[in-house]
Computed example of a mutant assay.
Amino acid sequence: MRELALIGIGTGNPDHLTSQGVAAIRGADLILIPRKGEEKSELADLRYQICARVLGSDARSRIAEFDMPTRDSAGDYLDGVAAWHDAVAKAWTDTASEVPNAHKIALLIWGDPCLFDSALRVVERLSPAPQVSVVPGITAVQALCAAHRIPLNETGAPFIVTTGRRLREGGWPEDVETVAVMLDSACAFQNLAPDGITIWWGAYLGMAEELIVAGTLADAAPRILKTRAEARARHGWIMDTYLLRRRPA
């Protein structure tokens, strides 16, 4: 693995792929696609569709699948993440080494490789270190705001992007009125006092199955919980994010 391209592919719409991403796919000797179990086979299928669109009949011969390691959620969070990153780096290396003369490797990264994605931290564990390039992609936060037709921030005002775990444990971040929340399987918005808060929620953003709900937190939260549970039961998995905005005191 002499060169490694991390290519942002957006949030589920093949049209999110940029011309830069197309060129990076075409320049790769081998594209690694993770398997995450049958319930998330749609995510692998989408990556195959993108490769077929870009590479045509040559796509299958330039793809190798690997089993995506799972993170151990028991014990210390950061230790579990570090061990998971080690396992992912080994999976990349082992898979690439099975293909002769595959020196330029590409990974298709959901969303953007630089926002709430582990790929660049996994890269730090590769030895010898490859030459790395990053192709930016449309993030879930961008797709969410586009779906709801809202600006991400108020005029001249800051915002913060955080995780459900941090929102649940620390409450509303200080000195901001707009909070974008990712990686929240437990719906941490339930722990907030709803007065004065508006929520914009979306799942499967960019995909044909896209779902969106918006309103005051008090009104929208029950609808989001019901919609989310039904969608997860139907698909076997769910990827969602949401934006919260609080009126200033």
Score class of each variant (00 low, 15 high):
Ile238Val: 14
Ile7Cys: 08
Pro158Ser: 10
Ile25Gly: 05
Thr241Ile: 05
Ala82Cys: 00
Phe66Tyr: 15
Ile31Glu: 02
Cys114Gly: 10
Val161Leu: 14
Thr70Gly: 04
Arg2Ile: 02
Asp67Phe: 12
Val132Pro: 04
Asn13Cys: 13
Ala52Gly: 08
Ala106Ile: 07
Glu42Met: 12
Glu177Val: 03
Arg26Asn: 00
Arg234Ala: 08
Ile33Met: 11
Asp79Trp: 11
Gly202Ala: 11
Val22Glu: 12
Gly80Pro: 00
Met239Pro: 00
Leu30His: 04
Ser19Val: 15
Leu108Asp: 06
Leu107Glu: 02
Val81Asp: 01
Asp219Asn: 04
Pro173Cys: 07
Ile238Gln: 07
Leu55Thr: 02
Ile9Phe: 00
Pro14Thr: 10
Leu46Met: 09
Arg71Glu: 03
Gly206Asp: 12
Ser19Ile: 12
Val213Phe: 01
Val54Thr: 06
Ile50Tyr: 00
Ala186Glu: 15
Thr178Ala: 13
Val141Arg: 15
Arg228Lys: 15
Gly137Glu: 09
Pro130His: 13
Gly170Val: 05
Ile63Lys: 05
Pro113Lys: 07
Gly171Asn: 07
Leu144Val: 04
Cys51Lys: 00
Leu167Pro: 01
Leu120Gln: 14
Lys40Thr: 11
Gln20Ser: 12
Leu205Pro: 03
Leu192Asn: 06
Ile138Leu: 12
Thr95Asp: 02
Ile109Trp: 02
Ile109His: 01
Tyr204Glu: 04
Trp200Thr: 05
Gly206Thr: 12
Phe189Arg: 01
Ile238Glu: 05
Trp110Thr: 04
Thr155Met: 15
Pro248Ile: 00
Arg228Pro: 03
Cys145Ala: 13
Leu192Pro: 07
Arg149Pro: 02
Arg232Ile: 13
Gly206Arg: 11
Gly10Pro: 01
Gly111Ser: 10
Asp175Trp: 09
Asp29Cys: 05
Gly10Gln: 03
Gly21Leu: 11
Arg232Leu: 14
Tyr242Asp: 06
Ile7Gln: 09
His148Phe: 09
Ile31Gln: 07
Gly206Cys: 14
Ala83Met: 14
Thr163Phe: 13
Ala147Val: 06
Ala44His: 03
Thr198Pro: 03
Arg223His: 14
Pro128Phe: 06
Glu209Lys: 14
Ile31Pro: 03
Ser41Met: 11
Trp84Ala: 04
Ile7Leu: 13
Asp117Arg: 03
Ala28Trp: 08
Ala102Pro: 03
Asp29Tyr: 11
Ala180Gly: 11
Ala23Leu: 14
Thr155Asn: 01
Arg228His: 15
Trp237Asp: 04
Thr216Cys: 03
Ile63Cys: 03
Arg165Gln: 10
Cys51Gln: 00
Pro14Cys: 11
Val134Tyr: 06
Thr70Ile: 15
Ile160Ala: 10
Ala28Gln: 05
Cys187Leu: 12
Met68His: 11
Met68Gln: 10
Gln131Ala: 11
Pro151Cys: 05
Arg26Lys: 07
Arg62Ile: 08
Ala146Val: 02
Ile138Cys: 05
